[in-house]
Design a protein around this nucleic acid. Sequence first.
DNA 1: TTCCTGATTGACT
DNA 2: GTCAATCAGGAAG
Length: 230
Amino acid sequence: MPSAATSSDVTGLPGGDRFVPDHALFALPATEIAPLLLGGLLTHETDAGAVVLRITEVEAYLGDGTDPGSHAFRGPTARNRVMYGPPGHVYVYFSYGMHACANIVCSPAGAASAVLLRAAEVIRGEALAQSRRGAVPARDLARGPARLTVAAGIRLDENGADLLAAPFGLELQRRPPEPATGPRVGVSGLGGGAGYPWRFWIPGDPAVSAYRAATRRGARAPRRQQPTRD
DNA sequence: TTCCTGATTGACT
DNA sequence: GTCAATCAGGAAG
């Protein structure tokens, strides 16, 4: 169990038996860290103010070469180098040409495991999150990995930042809720399906993203061709 | 160097 | 339910 003994209450929110984890906790494998994050409070502060999220859904990705769904499956690259760094830091990556998604680096440095933050509930800074996300229902503000980063104001240039130091902050529940588990969302091939039930969420929580299996886009319109001159 | 794929989302039918 | 937007990473040649 983590050594942090007292709840310094970085969020100032009342209630809950919570503690501030230290970096040593994140040296555990991602599959062990992931369920511990459920119900935890993630704070991110910018000049515009702070947003506090209650984490409702996460996914674990291993970097030991056995997880084909992991960005680290093929070894270190410029993009995933943060995954190979010290645990307890934030790995933010650019996805689908338009979205940023946030992970927490787990396991000892070099192991390249991470936990993807898939969904959360905004419990403080709702107006700020609304200003970033537009007029959407409160439960949808951070329901989805890209939505979560937008609502919290997490930027790509914060890739590699320490999750346990400003502008971030994290409090975990001493007794996290019993998680539901299932296949990871959008992970195709061997990395998805029942063989990798490393998606964890709070059962019945409205701020959990909908499951979407990996989709292949074989029927998509032809890609833009180089213009032909004639 | 070229081309395809993807840990997504929101608009549209 | 389907589909397009958009770009970095990585495989293939």
